[in-house]
Write a protein that binds this DNA or RNA. Structure first.
Lengths: 148, 148
DNA sequence: CCTACAACCTGTAGCCACTACAGCTTCAAG
DNA sequence: CTTGAAGCTGTAGTGGCTACAGGTTGTAGG
């Protein structure tokens, strides 16, 4: 009997996928774009991953889950590989991304307000002769805010 | 002397672009995917738009600005062309989109919280030996919330 | 009437971050 | 040794544009 999967040190791509929650195709994609280094291969040319790969892929997944762009992750990985790490740069990337996320939230909130107004008018007791949703889209002057 | 541009009833694509704030290439794209009907052509095969096109494109732009998918806009346009309009369906599309926007906001807020925590720790008075941003990304257990 | 040049035309490729095949080969359990 | 899951490469598709390349047309000034 072989050791349990969670204990094996050298694993095929499917097991790496299970452990990290990243799909097999996505792992190969990350390799292709240079986020994940090319692993060793079996005699039959299949990828064999070690502990370092698991950790690196977990890093990538976490960063992607937080919405970092692949390009930013490339930089963050490079920084984390650097001995005398440039923490300033890592912090700048995180701060910039935080700004982007906040901008996106602000924009979505403005959309939300406008959509809520449109949808509410329509579901409310407006005369059914014309559809309020269609009307609102046809005529921008119905908008309360023109920021969008 | 010709009438001023804003008064002309039949205009080329560039003028339509100016009036609606939609780029020329995007207008051609909308035609290609069937949102905007094919206009008449000049003798030299150039597109000539009338008032109806301006209104339809304004509708499309407004809907896109509100984040509706092209596919939803296709349906909304079909509904608006229908005499006995199915307002229910239009309302359902708007309501569904509002839900999506709210979901997106919720997800982004959770990201924002996590990112703010990471960025703040790093800019705060943490010992400089290891970078908190890199650490946080490397080790998911540092997260307070595991929802993402 | 002619020239110059902006605006137009079609068609194709690129962007991001995957995802989904098609058509093979390899691995491992029974 | 057989079978079937899992692996392999390479390509195309997603959404909603955007950006060319390489040509044609429209129009204002001279």
């Amino acid at each position: 009997m072989r050791p349990a999967k969670t204990l094996e040190r050298v694993v095929p791509i499917g097991t790496l996928a299970e452990r990290t929650g990243v799909k097999v195709e996505t792992i190969r994609y990350y390799e292709q774009v240079g986020l994940l280094p090319e692993p060793e291969r079996s005699e039959g040319n299949q990828r064999r991953y070690g502990r370092a790969h698991v950790e690196r892929l977990a890093f990538i997944k976490h960063a992607r889950d937080l919405g970092f762009a692949v390009e930013s992750i490339r930089t963050l990985l490079r920084l984390s590989d650097t001995p005398g790490m440039a923490c300033d740069e890592a912090h700048a990337i995180a701060a910039e991304h935080l700004e982007e996320v906040r901008d996106k939230i602000a924009r979505l909130r403005s959309l939300e307000a406008e959509l809520a107004r449109i949808a509410t008018v329509c579901s409310g007791g407006v005369a059914a002769s014309d559809c309020a949703v269609i009307e609102a889209l046809a005529d921008h002057s119905h908008c309360e805010h023109h920021s969008h």
